[in-house]
Design a protein around this nucleic acid. Structure first.
Lengths: 124, 124
DNA sequence: TGAATTCGTAATAAACGAAGTTACATGAAA
DNA sequence: TTTCATGTAACTTCGTTTATTACGAATTCA
């Protein structure tokens, strides 16, 4: 599939697709080919790739939007709040990452296939 | 304490402080007074106010930085990913909110006092 | 009463990061 | 050798958050 086709699917720009897919390629999850009939291809087995792998491949972006702006602040108030919540955030993050690791591309593909059949049936 | 003093403490602007404190006032957690010797005052008992209350007073800002951009997408792929993760995110959010509810301002105050004494002792 | 303070709030500007776009180089196939 | 597609740097645009300005209203003090 070409960057252009992918970009069209998700309403964005081919270069944005290349940027992101490039990270997945570095992680060995996809391969790209240039020229005629080029584009992107999944190289790993769908059963072997989890959302945890994708999260790691994309640079482990921050999961939380709030909390802890500074790991070791001088401000004692900030220190107290961090101390009160750091453990909880770590626990919640661990939970999420565990769950990410339980969802494979094969799972998503199966669910997609089911939804696709359902949508087709509804149209009739 | 005046908005200006608070702003200085947290390296920001007095108007920013007023905006945020205004939300806490609407929630009944603080009161403000104008004119000479005016400023902000905590009105609730420190034991009675939790971080959960603060989060609610500030409008329940989003906790997660990733996941679910669209609650009911047309895209079937997006639907599959949402279905796979929505429960997990809900669980993690519930965990965090529970913990927020367990931390009172009194707890933070006690921890701060301890740290403050410790810092003083170290200076001698 | 009048000057000094301090909050209340709207309006505007600045800063920042994410996303989009352009441009051009590289490689592969027809 | 032309066409197609990725690779990547540079730049622009966009949206959100934060900072700032400006002015009004309320309160205190002299």
């Amino acid at each position: 599939m070409t960057s252009e086709a992918l970009a069209h699917c998700m309403s964005t720009h081919p270069v944005v697709v290349r940027r992101t897919m490039g990270l997945l390629r570095k992680a060995g999850l996809v391969a790209s080919e240039r020229g005629h009939a080029g584009g992107w291809r999944i190289t790993a087995a769908l059963e072997a790739v989890t959302l945890r792998h994708l999260h790691a491949a994309l640079g482990e972006p921050a999961i939380f939007a709030i909390g802890n702006r500074n790991e070791t602040p001088d401000c004692l108030v900030e220190q107290s709040v961090n101390a009160a919540l750091d453990g909880t955030f770590a626990e919640a993050e661990a939970l999420l990452l565990e769950r990410f690791a339980e969802v494979t591309l094969a799972d998503l593909s199966a669910d997609f296939t089911r939804r696709h059949a359902q949508r087709r049936a509804q149209k009739e």
